[in-house]
Amino acid sequence: MSEGRARPLVAYTLRRLLGAVALLFVLSVVVFSLIYWAPGDIARNLLGNRQVTPESLAAVRRQYHLDQPFVVQYAGWLRAALHGDFGRSIRTGEPVGGLIRDRIGVTAAICGLAFVLSVVGGVAAGIACAVRRGSWLDRILVSGSVLGVSAPAFAVGLLLLYVFAVWLGWFPFYGTGDGLLDGLWHLALPALTLAIGLAAFVVKLTRAAVARELDADYVVFARSRGLGRGAVLRIVLRNAAVPIVTSLGLLLAYLFGGTVLVEVTFALPGAGALMQDAVEFKDFPVVQALTLAVGLIVTLSAVVVDVVYLLVDPRLRGRVSHR
């Protein structure tokens, strides 16, 4: 891409990033207000299961600046949060930052693995379906993906555990393993569980996108010029990539929702399981930090999707540079 065309792209990316920062700011206000929305006295909530005495309540009020106005409280919290300090977990007393750092790796590995599995499998199956619309392969894959979309993750997880871990004994029941290969072996079933629902969605998406492009006039025109099947399919895929790539970004939000169930089902010490515990115990600092982290990932992936959209669709590029 020439420099003349790259400049609007950079400007657009910067604009979108600024928008993302604004969005995260709003999110942080909402997240911070969480403790005010919960029923009961804030100081008591923050004490959790520690002993409630007038001294401990006063200490908590001091620690969280609860006697100060909301804006001051928020500013203090935000300043600390920007430095990675989200306070201490109410349940364990450990710093929240460290707690999340310990857990996020497993979650990232499951999500990453699931994403790759579902995209590779889903896109390939979707293309096969679209090219052979109405064939038995198409029908099997489409009905299979309806099943995949509608089956809840914990049920799929239990089924996979029973078949592959208990019955066949190919994979371990639980744990994260040591080293890369062992880790992959341990995380294969959880990632597959998460990937099945996702892949089903990707199949439907890809099938629809490719099928629509196959019916386009430019396909008839390309074929009329003597272009072979492979050449035509390449042209079609380049066009179908536009809707597929942009929808994949939206899947990330689904991934982080699904990982909670999967981590609990497979008893994995990930951020999803941490989230579940934290919500159960009203562990506000942990919930706040995790919500912000998920918000950050979803917002950033939305920015990435928008930029990729520009890269794959020249029409959009033209529109952006005209602004």
Partner: peptide, 30 residues
């Protein structure tokens, strides 16, 4: 037959070209 024998020019130039490929590439495909 197609291409070198008979070629077909379609009605709508807005849909008969792939929107995401450069014109030079499209002409050169065959």
């Amino acid at each position: 037959i197609r291409g070198g024998g008979i070629a077909l020019l379609l009605q709508d130039p807005f849909t008969s070209l792939s929107p995401v490929h450069r014109c030079g590439d499209q002409i050169g495909w065959g």
